[in-house]
Design a protein around this nucleic acid. Structure first.
Lengths: 344, 344
DNA sequence: CGCCTTTCTGGGAGCGCTCCCAAAATTACC
DNA sequence: GGTAATTTTGGGAGCGCTCCCAGAAAGGCG
């Protein structure tokens, strides 16, 4: 049975309040008393009881990371571990703990119910001081709920509501750079495998693709656009749909999809990059490990996570001011072999 | 301001205690009263306050996942997301929440201090009802501490202490199957890139390698054993050390290391599998995506995670009995192209 | 040295819940 | 119809902490 404040107080010959002051670094404690109390704390291994503290302060020092339902499937994408590492590091640095809320990958309606339940349990029950939401579809019901409940949160991605803080990478520019690179290499039939179009990253990367074509005055051929879901399987399926339209280059909105596309191209007897150039997005470790190494758009995934936590912390710790923070991080084109750096 | 028990009670015209009974499904409540109370709960959106509840019950319904320091680097290995998914799903199913404790990847001594601090904060402060520990070195100080503090925990891996419950995969047999397969294909100089030898998975896979050789009466050549750290870079470095000893086949204790090894072999002008056969371990998604697709040992990663939670839950919910649970899951050899399924 | 500030300390109240016990209401049974 | 057993209900105490307020101690100053 671990000691309580009261017990420590008795051992140190002071009152509960004084021990509390010492623990919470309140300045008004005589140095010798402070030292005596610390001594007892050290000796007894006293540690404040989290629940009792939360009950009194109404804060838990726990941040939630919520990754809504459907996307859980994507969890095999190395994007997430890297993101989580960024988030976890930043949490550590700010002395917050991290609670992970994934949603079961079962049938949609069941999962919807679970999500409701979890939302109730985790947020309404005041488990969390704030949350980071990642990879949510634009119309996810979680946003209105969070806003209504007044839970501080930061989105990774974007959401057009004046009171939502977010951190995003410049998906439009990144995608545009990728496609422009392909066009510069002389490709005229550049296809794209998009992400899910109900997510902002999916939409933005498609927008970048369109902009790149538009800048060259090339009309968009809808047959060269296939929607994927960020997974390898999705990339394969999309590539199969694209194949009959004979693209000479493909911009995939994620490296996993690019890998899937390459597999399909190979099966169709096409060489990469000689017959079809491929560019991905993310620059996950896999990108440099496949054959040929992927040309891709690097996004600062870890920073995305840590930045989200920074914003959230500032949001939580200044509850008065209604400031909204928005950060957009830059992307970078990493040229490897899959685009076939050839002259036209 | 969310409603409290007391407020719900007043609205329903009953006492605090009765509402508590309804919420906690205690049978001794008259059905019509129960219904009336539920009605109010629904209307007000009442949700019990987690901290208050924890304070009274001394349980939090939160499970911690602890992945000790050094290994955090490995977090790019897709092994972890899959494991986490298994754990998260099982937590959901049992109505527990999941807290993630990773340790900062800074300098070792700093990280050691942080780990101490986190240990204090998270465990001594009773944030968690129990923990799952994954990928800890055998001599990690966390084990004695957990045992001493009487925190229920389940290890993913193994630990030889009578009071430790764990779930593991059959690394010895898995590794042995892999190496036997290579021997069966006619290889005589089979090298191995091991995992970190201070981890039991690393040791066991090496043991499987030794057993396979011993079964054929082949003496172990220590020059053909190189220690890695489960990362791609580690695999590359180990392969470089192995190269001068001209192995004709390599068994890598993880797919990431196998991928690294292949890269080095290629750079040395060797073909895989024609010149050197390679077998990995894990069967992460990457394994089927590289060229050539990896022959590897599949382990049920997700099940490993969910099983750990099952054990932990049973441990936590039957605190009286001193039962120790030990589960070892089977592995399976998945034959693809990298081993070169050729006749001798 | 006495009075007024400032610093330090102790105790009460309360955060929202559960759990126990006793009282009230109901049911069972002779 | 009355007593005993059982079910249902309400209230008190307490979980371990923080925060506020009032009182004690210390310091400043004429």
């Amino acid at each position: 049975m671990p000691p309580t404040l009261e017990e420590v107080a008795k051992l140190a010959g002071v009152s509960r309040s004084t021990v509390s002051r010492v623990v919470n670094q309140h300045p008004n404690v005589r140095p010798e008393v402070r030292e005596r109390v610390w001594e007892v704390i050290r000796k007894t291994g006293y540690q404040p009881h989290a629940a009792a503290r939360s009950l009194a302060t109404r804060r838990t020092r726990v941040i939630g990371l919520i990754i809504p339902q459907a996307v859980t499937t994507l969890f095999t994408d190395p994007y997430f571990p890297i993101l989580i590492r960024g988030i976890a590091d930043a949490c550590n640095a700010h002395n917050y703990h991290l609670m992970l809320s994934l949603f079961s990958r079962r049938r949609v309606q069941e999962s919807r119910a679970r999500q409701d339940l979890l939302y109730q349990q985790v947020l309404r029950s005041r488990y969390l001081d704030g949350v980071v939401v990642s990879s949510a579809p634009l119309d996810d019901p979680i946003f209105p709920r969070l806003l209504e409940d007044g839970v501080p949160f930061v989105l990774i991605g974007r959401y057009s509501h004046e009171r939502v803080s977010y951190v995003d990478v410049d998906n439009v520019v990144g995608a545009r750079m990728a496609v422009e690179h392909l066009l510069r290499l002389g490709h005229e039939r550049v296809a794209t495998i998009t992400g899910p179009l109900n997510m902002c990253a999916g939409q933005d990367r498609l927008e970048g693709y369109r902009q790149a074509l538009a800048a060259r005055g090339i009309p968009v051929d809808e047959d060269l656009i296939a929607e994927g879901d960020f997974t390898e399987q999705g990339g394969q399926a999309a590539m199969r749909r694209l194949l009959p339209h004979r693209p000479t280059a493909v911009f995939a909105a994620s490296d996993m999809m690019a890998a899937g596309a390459i597999k399909v191209l190979r099966e169709a007897g096409l060489r990469v990059p000689e017959d079809v150039a491929v560019v991905g997005f993310d620059d996950i470790p896999l990108a440099s490990m496949v054959e040929p190494p992927l040309t891709t758009v690097r996004q600062p995934i870890e920073q995305l996570g840590s930045m989200a936590v920074e914003l959230l912390v500032s949001l939580m710790e200044n509850p008065g001011e209604e400031t909204v923070h928005r950060v957009v991080l830059p992307t970078e084109l990493v040229i490897r072999a899959s685009c076939g750096v050839r002259s036209r």
